[in-house]
Design a protein around this nucleic acid. Structure first.
Length: 351
DNA sequence: AAACAACTCAACCGCAGAACC
DNA sequence: GGGTTCTGCGGTTGAGTTGTT
């Protein structure tokens, strides 16, 4: 434990020590409410204690151990009282944050798995910046971690694409380019698993292109080991693109979009393997995941294999009116007129 | 090797709502 | 019912790390 703590305390960037007075003074001066005055009083009071200045900045190993030991003995909660009782010259807030985001034994560290990333993208598309709500669906992950992930990775992609992270354009890119890619990686990582986790279900949906807050419709066909999705825009229902994936690595399927772009994903059989063994867990998954309306469709698809056509509604598909234009945004200088064929791998390499 | 830029992430802040007195 | 305190959330910051020139 000590070793871990030392490593943790040594690594990572963070604020060091109290902020310069210059940065806090204007805030203090502007704070006129009684509440703020009270809070300032608390800080002063704590600072005025026996050789006690309220500590800020990175936690030391000793502080971590003190907090861990105290919580192990007395439990968590009542953070202000806890901070005082434990002898930590910290605010209750600081103690709570340190415990929840870092010291809790069940906090999972390290990079997000593809499944986790997929889940984050999906949940954020539904709930927005409800970080704690999203974190609740990812055991061991904290809202802070997810928030950081979103800001550093996802917003970076949006910036690179020169569009707003909340724009329909970017959401479409996530759904049709990023999420299938993540699903592919997640499936590859768990090809031997037959779990019926929400993430496994999500992988299927990412492959199928199903999503939330998007419109038009998508026709998904399972044919001889190939998943074929034909999307239509909401207005005229005419096919605007075809994205085909295959479950057979030896016989890749590909189809050209109406405007000339092709997206091909070579998958393994893990998408089928992701179906629950018993078969009735799909309803539970669907219920658990609220509006995952395609769960039963996917069950049929995963179980049946043969020729099936599954039609599921989407709300709005602005991107699909010109998928090639969007795909073009990932490349440099390509135009629809060139009719160049891009695989998703190509697209992501360019990206 | 040095300088700079970009990225990461722990920790902070203000605010709102819940809980308590 | 009203004031105070506590808790939790989302947004922001900036030191340290990593990558690039």
């Amino acid at each position: 434990m000590e070793m871990v703590l030392q490593q943790r305390a040594a690594g990572g960037g963070c604020r060091l020590g109290p902020r310069p007075a210059a940065s806090t003074a204007p805030v203090m001066a502007a704070a006129s409410s009684a509440k703020h005055e009270q809070e300032q009083e608390e800080v002063k009071e704590a600072a005025a204690g026996p050789d006690a200045e309220l500590r800020r900045g990175p936690w030391t190993v000793d502080e971590d151990l003190t907090l861990i030991n105290y919580i192990a003995e007395h439990g968590e909660g009542r953070w202000n009282a806890l901070a005082r009782a434990a002898g930590l010259n910290r605010t209750g807030k600081s103690c709570r944050l340190r415990w929840l985001n870092y010291l809790r034994p069940d906090v999972k560290r390290g990079d997000f798995t593809a499944d986790e990333q997929l889940l984050i993208l999906d949940l954020h598309s539904r709930w927005g910046n409800r970080w704690s709500k999203i974190a609740a669906q990812l055991p061991g992950r904290t809202d802070n971690e997810i928030k950081n992930y979103w800001r550093t990775r996802v917003q970076k992609h949006a910036k690179q694409l020169n569009c707003d992270v909340n724009s329909a354009r970017f959401k479409d890119a996530m759904r049709f380019l990023w999420m299938p890619r993540l699903a592919e990686r997640a499936a590859a990582a768990q090809s031997s698993s037959s779990s019926a986790s929400p993430a496994a279900s999500l992988r299927q949906q990412a492959i199928s292109g199903d999503g939330h807050g998007l419109g038009g419709s998508a026709l998904m066909t399972a044919n001889a080991g190939c998943f074929e999705m034909t999307t239509t825009n909401g207005a005229d229902r005419s096919p605007s693109s075809v994205v085909t994936t295959t479950t057979s690595s030896s016989s890749p399927c590909s189809s050209r979009t109406s405007s000339g772009s092709t997206a091909t994903v070579n998958n393994d059989d893990s998408y089928k393997a992701a179906a629950p063994a018993g078969g009735d867990d799909w309803a539970a998954i669907q219920q658990d995941q609220e509006s995952w309306s395609t769960a039963s469709n996917l069950q049929q698809l995963a179980a049946g294999g043969g020729d099936q056509q599954l039609l599921f509604p989407l709300a709005d598909l602005p991107m699909m009116q010109d998928l090639s234009g969007w795909v073009q945004g990932f490349s440099e200088g390509a135009t629809p007129e060139t009719h160049q064929l891009w695989s998703l791998d190509d697209i992501w390499r360019m990206h």
